[in-house]
Amino acid sequence: MSSKVVVVVFFIFAILHHDVWNWNNRSLWLGFLPAGLAYHVAYSLIAGIFWYLVTRYAWPHATEAWAEKGSGE
């Protein structure tokens, strides 16, 4: 996965944060979770999956190798 793909998916994901369709939705999912909260709980879970895929397929190996070459202390 290239960094450009990561940036594009990130911005799409950021747009999906703005769930205006849930603005006045007061229904309860699973009988207890307000819809607007349930959506964002799912959003948090998917964010975790997204970042897992990013660390797996778009890891900055070059930066890591560059740092390890340094003198440090």
Partner: peptide
């Protein structure tokens, strides 16, 4: 939650 928590998570 959306305002502060899920934005922060991302």
């Amino acid at each position: 939650y959306g305002l502060m928590a899920s934005w922060s998570g991302l």
